[in-house]
Write a protein that binds this DNA or RNA. Sequence first.
DNA 1: ATTAGGCGATTTTTT
DNA 2: ATCGCCTAAT
Length: 734
Amino acid sequence: MSIIDELNPIQREAVKTVEGPVLVLAGPGSGKTRVLTYRIAHLMNIGVPAYQILALTFTNKAASEMKGRIVELVGEKSNHLWMGTFHSIFARILRCEAEKLGYTKHFSIYDTTDSHSVICNLMDLLGISPQQYHPQAIRARISHAKNLLVSPEMFARDASDVFEEKTAIVFKEYEKKLKVNNAMDFDDLLVKPIELFEHHKKVLETYQERFRFILVDEYQDTNHAQYVLIKHLAARYRNLCIVGDDAQSIYGFRGADIRNILDFKHDYPDANIVNLEQNYRSTQTILAAADQVIKKNIDQLTKHLWTDNPKGEPITVLICQDDQHEGSMIVSRIFDDVSRLKIDFKDIAIMYRTNAQSRSIEDSLRRNSIPYVIIGGIEFYQRKEVKDVLAYLQLIVNPRDEESFMRIVNYPNRGLGETALGRLQQFASSKQLPLLEAARRANELESLTQKAKDNFTLFALLIHKYIQLKDSMSASELSRAVVDEVGILQMFKEEGTPEALARRENIQELLSAISEFSAQEADTTLAQFLEQVSLLSDVDQWDDKHNTVTLMTLHSAKGLEFPVVFISGVEEGLLPFSDSTFETKSVEEERRLLYVGITRAKVKLYLSYSRQRFRFGGVSYQVPSRFLGEISEELIQTTDYTRDSYVQRLRYKKREYSTTKQTSYYFTDDLPDYEQKYVEPVELHVGNFVEHDIFGKGKIIEIMGPKDSLKAVVDFQAVGRKNLMVKYARLKVI
DNA sequence: ATTAGGCGATTTTTT
DNA sequence: ATCGCCTAAT
């Protein structure tokens, strides 16, 4: 039996049309991943060698899952398949070709934080006030320009106001600085390959010959640079299969251009177009709601999604008093559904527009001991101490990387502050030296104190020592040696506070991650590890093996599915987000975002909103989202927990066991009433013994401040007295 | 003159 | 939890 017998006729067509351009318009849940994996497997089965296939995905996780599936289908012959995100694939190509562009193969990859920091330093140097011109905004503007392949010169020429003029100045210096640092930012990973292909036709031809079959997933979220890259690579053989759904385009703010998919027919008039319209994922009700919402968008290709799945339950809309209340209501429904639908926590996802919304939901989950994971937010590799250690390693691999140098030259404290560093920078730029070299020669700098000179020299010697050693040691030996010699673990140990010990554990975890990485394949270098880490996405770091509820933004939810989905904060100002409400185009993107969220659900969907919530440091009164009104009433069952004033004032509690579905909650008087709970999640009194997640156990000495920003002085057994904000401290009375 | 540590404010979405 | 700003300590 051929593998393609497992597909429906339309999917089969998408798989078997291997020559020429193919556009697969794949609605949510229509078996898109299946088509991609089977198509690749099919190519190999008809004799195409794996190394001639290039498959570009949106996340590394999607790539590795698909790869696993392909190995199952065709076995070992898929070994040399190139599959990954645009960024990781082109980083790999750039490593090989870096010299042609004036970089070394060990160039650093700067993430958004690094870029931001470079820009701040430059603005300082250029005398541009960060108060007047937000570095954040300048960075976004530069990134946007780069994605449109606009050079600093072009940008300067077209600058139409003061902000753009200032941006143009920073842009020019920023590009220079990155080059000097032997570093590329995320945008460069797409822009530099284009530069390479356009200036070195021979190189382009090599890659065109190599990648005769190209597949691109999530094409609706490609930006202009990605579009041009693909156009170049596919120009010779034109065996290009793109898969996407314009209705799921949600990265416009990042430069994604929905026209790429809408205009595909223009670029490739001979393209075969395949419409995957049968949905295998959701109930009829969920699909109908999704369809009603997305129909309000003007700018789209029309589709007719349908499903053989059962009608399913109505969509439940939860109306709540405020964000805390919303968290509690979601938790009750989770308990309810776990017993009612016989599902596990891992089958449930809670989605929201902004990361900040996770806090109140987390509180409720934690109070009720429901295990959960958050995708995104503050991730492991973004932790300060982890980034610091990585900066040491990065500097050893790429000694010209000034960003890494600045990060760690005074970490741990070497008494090298702002002024000392400023003088070193001046010295370095006047002599045209990299900072590390300047530090080595710090003795020539008269203006420094002897102590500063010594410390700069010692630091430079330390780094140089490991630069010498790096080729004779494995990645894991090297990183351990560095951490040891710098005394980072020792430092945290001496500090001894629970926070320091937590940081120490993070470093140890990082070291094991490096060992694990080296163990996977022979001869992995530190540089490879660093590259992998810098291109990891939030979803990539998600371990879906544990039985936990998953929390994430609607953006992160793309490509995933769950039996039960909660979408919280379906309110004006949040979804659609407030900045977007003035422009039709961005409202349409917000609508697509909701569409993505709705279509993640397989059997049960909840939409919730709150009458009020904490935003921007105060209480904000919220209005239900316009999108809710776009779903017809017969698909919805509404539970208004705020309508009855009696309900508002009392605390709800889940009944241990219930037989009827409507009365799963009852209200008790024996608990503090709702108003009280709202201001003061846990009632605290002087003399209470409490427990804190990090500081451990302690006794309350004093409580003070206004109700909404209550403070408590707590004497902890382990760390002594601490002044805490009650609303953040999550104290438990014991 | 410098640096370090404490305090207060902080909220779009991300490779 | 982290960043930036301010003040105390060296």
